[in-house]
Design a protein around this nucleic acid. Structure first.
Length: 210
DNA sequence: TTAAGGATTGACT
DNA sequence: GTCAATCCTTAAT
């Protein structure tokens, strides 16, 4: 059985251990619980320019530098919320992004929130969709995911996931100090894992271009 | 104070 | 396959 002390280790070591773990969110409407099927690690230390903590501590990412096991929420692309769990010892920056999961409880509520999804596998396939399905909001920033009274809670799987069932892959656009680091971890052949996309966000409308 | 850009998604061709 | 929406955070005046 795992315990939260494991979270003090570097994000890329902890990430695969979270696969199969349960993420749960309570609200007045009900509770939604899902099984994590895809995660992505962010070290925050040199070598990961993609990390929000890469440029040092700021008001937004402060929680990433604090004690592990807390929730880091952020707003992106003007309309989406994503959620991470803070990892690494107090004082070091690190986090693991919840990218996808399989809803195992509160499916009806999740489906009501995700009106655009057609299948159950789509309910939490993608980091922003996952937050919508669970009901995680920006204001949940900093919650202790391992405190029983928290609105949002996380637990490791009761039994470690076999290494043979875990797939890893690098995130595109990351220039590490040499060899690329496998930042992403997912359960092989799971239908709820988000399809791989090379990260190439579009620029906003360019007035200079006809 | 202002401007640029993003750990994405959903709609459309 | 391509592209727009949208607003918060950050860096630069």
């Amino acid at each position: 059985m795992y315990d939260r002390g494991l979270l003090d280790r570097p994000a890329d070591e902890v990430a695969p251990l979270l696969l199969g773990g349960l993420l749960s969110c309570r609200s007045p409407e009900g509770t939604v619980t899902l099984r994590l099927t895809e995660v992505e690690a962010y070290s925050g230390k040199g070598g990961d320019p993609g990390s929000h903590a890469h440029r040092g501590r700021t008001a937004r990412n402060a929680v990433m530098f604090g004690p592990s096991g807390h929730l880091y929420t952020y707003f992106t692309y003007g309309m989406h919320v994503c959620a991470n769990v803070v990892t690494g010892a107090d004082g070091t920056a690190g986090g693991i992004l919840f990218r996808a999961g399989e809803v195992i409880d509160g499916t009806d509520l999740a489906r009501r929130r995700r009106t655009t999804s057609t299948t159950e596998a789509d309910l939490a396939r993608g980091p922003a969709r996952l937050c919508v399905a669970l009901g995680i909001e920006l204001r949940d920033y900093g919650l202790d995911l391992f405190a029983p009274e928290s609105r949002v809670t996380l637990s490791f799987p009761a039994v470690p996931t076999e290494a043979a069932r875990i797939a890893t892959g690098p995130r595109t656009g990351i220039a590490g100090e040499g060899a690329p680091i496998p930042w992403r971890f997912w359960l092989k052949d799971d239908p709820t894992v988000s399809p791989y996309r090379a990260h190439a966000p579009r620029r906003r409308s360019d007035p200079a271009r006809s």
